[in-house]
């Protein structure tokens, strides 16, 4: 079995099959359950309509899954350093890029499990709206792009900052800087500035793409959204490459 596969399996197991990983999954599931029960019991929410509720539940599921998976990913390398297991990992016959790639893939995969656990809620909420139900998993598939981006940011921050707390803070800062324009755009009246602010926010653009799917529309004519997401993922990939070079240097220092 290749070293990458071994690391991938170990990371995957530590992301999901540890008390911490299971607790994060439980947070996702319990939050979704509470929201689903509230959506049935609060009459004011009926004003949103079932399609509006589906969209709200989808956004919460994605935001929560990305946040929890990012939180776990920001502990990967920094956590190994804190537990003094990083040096032995660096002695493995594998390049830093592959090592971080395996950690990134495992973190994004754990995030995909979070999204997968939200799928039954969304399917049931979407039933009866006339929406083709394949659009729900397809929307979650688009959310995986955001998941991949932010877990990559977290892995890079975890490697570069080296400590768990600073990794967490730096990931939060990056997320806030990237997503704040999208939130600001939501508060502004429609106009050129509002459109521009929304455009530079990857979360907003992924939600636009997924929202179109959930509204029964196509994905054509959303070139700007695709471009924003592509630039975000390319920047994250470069950040992970940079962090991998940093990891090799740190490994050399440690030896």
């Amino acid at each position: 079995m290749s070293t990458v596969r071994v690391i991938l399996g170990k990371e995957w197991a530590s992301s999901l099959l540890t008390p911490r990983g299971l607790l994060l999954l439980a947070i996702q599931v319990v939050t979704m359950s509470v929201l689903a029960i509230v959506s049935l019991s609060l009459p004011d929410l009926s004003l949103m309509g079932q399609a509006g509720l589906l969209k709200l539940l989808f956004q919460v599921a994605v935001a929560l899954a990305v946040a929890l998976a990012t939180l776990a990913a920001s502990l990967t390398v920094a956590g190994e350093r804190d537990q003094a297991t990083l040096e032995s990992l660096l002695l493995a016959p594998i390049s830093g890029t592959r090592l971080l790639g395996a950690k990134w893939l495992a973190a994004a995969g754990a995030g995909a499990v979070h999204l997968l656990l939200s799928l039954p809620y969304l399917i049931v909420m979407g039933a009866g709206t006339g929406l083709a139900l394949w659009r729900v998993p397809a929307g979650l598939g688009l959310a995986l792009l955001l998941m991949a981006g932010y877990t990559g940011v977290a892995v890079a921050a975890s490697t570069i900052s080296g400590r768990t707390f600073s990794a967490l803070v730096s990931t939060l800062v990056v997320a806030a800087v990237l997503e704040a324009p999208g939130f600001a755009a939501g508060a502004l009246p429609k106009g050129a500035l509002q459109k521009w602010l929304a455009t530079i926010s990857p979360g907003d653009q992924v939600m636009t793409l997924a929202g179109n799917l959930l509204a029964g529309k196509g994905l054509s004519g959303l070139g700007t959204s695709w471009l924003t997401v592509a630039i975000f993922l390319a920047a994250v990939y470069l950040a992970v490459r940079y962090a991998a070079a940093h990891l090799e240097l740190m490994g050399g220092d440690a030896q």
Binding site: S33, A36, I37, L40, L53, P120, Y121, V124, M125
Partner: peptide, 11 residues
């Protein structure tokens, strides 16, 4: 409206 029985089953 959302179907209460299946949603509660999942929830």
């Amino acid at each position: 409206a959302p179907q209460a029985a299946p949603l509660m089953t999942v929830a």
